[in-house]
């Protein structure tokens, strides 16, 4: 909000995207980049936790026992595609196409939901095989790392739904444009984190 100097642009300039057209938008987008940096550190701590504990299986299920290549590949590809559709949504927004923007966001939400569905199914499957969080340090850190990412994705879905509602009511304007751009940043960031989960957790786990 606010304050020091009003609109950065007093005249309409077509080179500057709508989400950057107010000082409010500029501040919030920058603030969100900083927030992503904090989230990055948060995941860094969880990753180092996982890397230290992933061999401490205490006689319980190991990585090789649990991870299943088609399953995690499906999750990965779905999330990669959703990141792409989310990027298309931002591009459509810049062209001012509200319908296409909302359509791509809905596709992104649906892909996100199917990702969450697959992940929940995976978790339920593990728990059914006795691989619970309480079983070993490895599983505690697995469920926490992957689960934290899953919570982020779920939150992102709720957030997108709220923005879809606002787009429906208010159309594309400075505030909604900023919101779409920021939720996009968030979504791509989660894709980046997932790529590391894919690499460090799953690929490393099936390496032998």
């Amino acid at each position: 909000m606010s304050l020091a100097h009003e609109e950065v642009l007093s005249h309409p300039d077509h080179d500057i995207p709508l989400e950057y057209s107010t000082e409010d938008g500029v501040l919030k987008i920058f603030g969100f980049w900083i927030f992503l940096a904090t989230d990055l550190i948060l995941f860094a701590c969880l990753f180092s936790m996982y890397q230290i504990l992933h061999l401490n299986t205490a006689g319980g299920p190991t990585e090789q026992d649990l991870y299943n290549v088609p399953e995690f590949m499906a999750e990965t590809l779905i999330l990669l595609v959703s990141s792409f559709t989310c990027g298309l949504a931002t591009l459509e927004m810049r062209k001012g196409h509200r319908g296409a923007l909302m359509a791509w966001l809905i596709v992104t939400v649906l892909l996100g939901l199917s990702f969450i569905f697959l992940e929940v199914r995976e978790f339920v499957d593990y728990v059914g095989r006795g691989a619970t969080m309480q079983r070993s340090a490895f599983l505690s850190s697995f469920f926490t790392l992957v689960g934290t990412h899953g919570c982020h994705v779920s939150l992102g879905i709720l957030w997108m739904l709220s923005i879809l509602y606002q787009l429906g009511r208010r159309g594309i304007q400075a505030i909604t444009a900023r919101k779409v751009f920021i939720v996009g940043l968030y979504w791509h960031f989660l894709d980046v984190v997932w790529v590391f989960i894919f690499t460090v957790v799953y690929l490393q786990g099936v390496m032998h």
């Binding site: 504990l53 401490n56 309480q134 079983r135 490895f138 505690s140 926490t144």
Partner: peptide, 17 residues
């Protein structure tokens, strides 16, 4: 999480550190 859900990040048992 250790305390509420009996996980094993920092316990002496089950491989915690």
């Amino acid at each position: 999480i250790d305390r509420l859900f009996d996980a094993h990040f920092f316990t002496m048992l089950q491989g915690g550190n």
